[in-house]
Design a protein around this nucleic acid. Structure first.
Ligand SMILES: [Zn+2]
Ligand SMILES: [Zn+2]
Ligand SMILES: [Zn+2]
Ligand SMILES: [Zn+2]
Lengths: 138, 138
DNA sequence: GCGAAGTTGACAATCATTTTCACCCCCACT
DNA sequence: AGTGGGGGTGAAAATGATTGTCAACTTCGC
């Protein structure tokens, strides 16, 4: 039986107030800063449970760290993530879904799942970086 | 300057004889079995170098382990990987490439990269699993 | 309020990968 | 063929995210 505890509420709340993908450690630090006494292991366990329940999305950063985000949609979707600031856009790709299934089936594969994530530099970060270049140059 | 050493040759050779994605540790064990004395750290370093040179492809398994494969094509492509036996098919997705760029651009993102990998059960493994079911059932 | 059962958290353990660093050996040059 | 210097090697230690441990602690149905 799942019980509602102070810690679980805190993690859920923290996820609601954050827009971007965050690691367990970042969330732990955030919660500590907010004055919640909470153990790191508990943050990990809670995030894992939320991920299994499909309440939060998980993805691995380039350096292998797991990051979590409470997305608007509960249904299957993908993400466009800013490599610099973590800004995230939820994206749909019906064409990709059917393409994946079709390709896999044509090779005799079944029970298909897919990973599709886009990474880039958001407009804000590109502008900031452009500023830096100018500043550096002059 | 890159030097050609016994160890680097051995790793390259091992990759050529293997069809599927393999982890650094698996390759290290394979090399040891073949009688090559080679350190694990060297295997890691060599695979990393090969990956940076674009000679081998890398992807992360569900549990976060990096696996490497010498693919036929040097150009950009994706993979369809059997979750059970690791059998791999190189796949092309021109539609996906343009879709990714279009979506990202429409959100003001630049400098786009994408991760697209398909996982499933290959025909052979599906058949084997079906056999198991029959065997278990009778 | 009680108590069984789920939860917590400090700390140890895991485990892939990286770093260290003293020794090794490849190779351009002679 | 010999040599030197600088890249390469590997055993062992370090790293760092994540997981396991387990005694103490809450939660919640009664
Ligand atoms: Zn950004
Ligand atoms: Zn999809
Ligand atoms: Zn298979
Ligand atoms: Zn692509």
């Amino acid at each position: 039986m799942q019980r509602m505890t102070r810690q679980r509420t805190a993690v859920a709340d923290a996820l609601s107030t954050v827009e971007d993908f965050r690691s367990a450690q970042q969330l732990h630090e955030l919660l500590r800063d907010q004055g919640h006494g909470i153990g790191l292991a508990t943050v990990y366990r809670t995030l894992q449970a939320l991920a299994e329940a499909g309440v939060v999305d998980v993805l691995r950063t380039a350096d292998g760290e797991s990051v979590y985000r409470r997305c608007e949609r509960r249904e299957h979707h993908h993400h466009l993530v800013c490599r610099t600031c973590g800004a995230t856009v939820e994206i749909d790709g019906p064409a990709v879904e059917s393409w994946a299934d079709r390709i896999a089936a044509s090779h005799g594969f079944t029970d298909i799942t897919h990973t599709v994530e886009l990474f880039g530099t958001c407009a804000a970060c590109a502008a900031a970086s452009g500023q830096d270049d100018v500043a550096t140059g002059g």
